[in-house]
Design a binder for these strands. Structure first.
Length: 418
RNA sequence: CGGGGUGUAGCGCAGCUUGGUAGCGCGGCUGGUUUGGGACCAGUAGGUCGUAGGUUCGAAUCCUAUCACCCCGACCA
């Protein structure tokens, strides 16, 4: 990709309303723009990061036998009345009517729709277990959206659902999602932890949350030295204490702030019972399916990753989710044919090696370009000016190191993929 | 929803107390000199002062209503 074909929208100033670092940097780096409270448009640079994250999630879910689908975001009220959540969900569920006066809502989550979908096509134990996921926009009418895409009203979430004949089968699948989630967060190179979020409600529904550890997180976690632990709500119940301080005193656990980026649940038969999602067993008995659901906040991960990895110059993307693996910064290319043709040659070579490379062919000063790419956070730069064109070399610079080094053309690939 | 705050050019802000017809920085555009770490000079465009109403000879400024946005709280897979 060349910058002349890939608009970048960096800016020096930030709107005063952006409070947290990730929000400020996302605006400065030209990743997002606000439409209204809690709603953001994603510009090319930001969308590429989303797509990188989505791809990692896809690969790991496919790996545990989960298939991708896509469901409508506008959902009929009947389904929500069937599950009982039309009354239970509260004002966070945005409701409206169509021209025929039929009631609808904008999907904040998809248990109803998926249960309805599966029950219509699945009737035998032979078809189970079944695992389906989608990556789509969700809408929750939050009382107070804040911190940019961290707590938005409209956001992208991956939601997966599993259906089983027995609790045992659900338990096994639940563990496979745990493992897949660990792989996903490791590939995203996030500093994360999984905590117990067991609600303790009747029915013994089990749940675990995945948190990125960051001071700007909104959730309180209580962790041991190995970073295993639970969220504050569970800790209060478990240790019969009602404040964070008293729990720390009693248990000696560490307190950390977390950004919730994943949550997996054993739903049991809650939805299948209400919505009559039954299958016939080997013994010809009719039973409600056991269900699990598994969410990952894709857009929230973008913000969490930035909270975790930035410096005073801007974002520092982990290689796995950087919008580009490297940038070619040309100096004076519009004036100097040798520079331009050398840069073009390098660009074409790298492009053919399947790397995602952006070539900054703008008529701008070296300092301007470098500041932009440091703000955007591309991990590796390949600098090409008069000197490099003459020597048939390039200058390499890492986002995290101050020094540059002149290297041979054949060594570029090694540097970038390292 | 309760408390607090802000709406003036794309962004950041001044002007409002004491009414007299809107300004600064950044950004944009044109020309020129520049370009190895956010260059400089000259010129130029861009604003129903959130919206509606009121007071007044005259309102960005005073009054009323309303909308939007932000912060704290409550709320929240």
């Amino acid at each position: 990709m060349k910058v002349s074909n890939f608009p970048i929208f960096t800016q020096k100033d930030i709107p005063s309303e952006a409070e947290v670092t990730s929000h400020q940097l996302m605006i400065k780096a030209g990743m997002i723009r606000k439409l209204s409270s809690g709603q953001y448009s994603w510009l090319p640079m930001g969308l590429r990061v989303i797509q990188k994250i989505e791809q990692i999630i896809r690969e790991e879910l496919n790996d545990i036998g989960c298939s991708e689908i896509l469901m409508p975001s506008v959902q009929p009220a009947e389904l929500w009345k069937e599950s009982g959540r039309w009354d239970d969900y509260g004002p966070e569920l945005l409701r409206f009517k169509d021209r025929h006066d039929r009631e609808f809502c904008l999907g904040p989550t998809f248990e109803e729709v998926i249960t309805d979908l599966v029950k219509k096509d699945v009737s035998s134990y032979k078809q189970l277990p079944i695992n389906l996921f989608q990556i789509s926009s969700k809408f929750r009418d939050e009382i107070r959206p804040r911190f940019g895409v961290m707590r938005a009203r409209e956001f992208i979430m991956k939601d997966a659902y599993s259906f089983h004949e027995t609790q045992d089968c659900l338990d096994i699948t639940y563990e496979s999602y745990k493992a897949a989630y660990r792989k996903i967060f490791e590939r995203l190179t996030l500093d994360y932890t999984m905590v117990d979020a067991d609600s303790g409600n009747i029915g013994g529904n089990k749940s675990n949350e995945f948190h990125v550890i960051a001071d700007t997180g909104e959730d309180d976690l209580l962790l041991d030295e190995k970073l295993n632990g639970m969220n504050l709500e569970i800790a209060k119940i478990k240790y019969s204490e009602d404040s964070l301080e008293s729990i720390i005193k009693k248990t000696g656990l560490m307190h950390k702030k977390g950004i919730e980026v994943g949550h997996i649940f054993k739903l049991g038969q809650k939805y299948s019972e209400k919505m009559k999602a039954k299958i016939t067993t080997k013994e010809s008995k009719s039973v409600d399916m056991f269900m699990g659901c598994y969410g990952i906040g894709v857009t929230r991960i973008v913000a969490a990753a930035i909270e975790q990895s930035h410096d005073s110059n801007g974002i520092i993307w982990p290689k796995s989710i950087s919008p580009f693996e490297a940038v070619i910064v040309e100096i004076d290319g519009h004036k100097n044919n040798e520079v331009r043709s050398h840069a073009n040659e390098i660009y074409e070579t790298l492009r053919s090696s399947k790397l995602n490379i952006i070539y900054d062919d703008r008529d701008a000063s070296f300092g301007n370009k470098m500041k932009d790419w440091e703000l955007i956070g591309i991990p590796k730069s390949i600098i090409i000016g008069k000197k490099e064109a003459k020597n048939k070399t390039v200058t390499y610079k890492s986002r995290t190191e101050k020094d540059k080094s002149e290297i041979n053309v054949e060594d570029i690939l090694g540097k970038i993929t390292k």
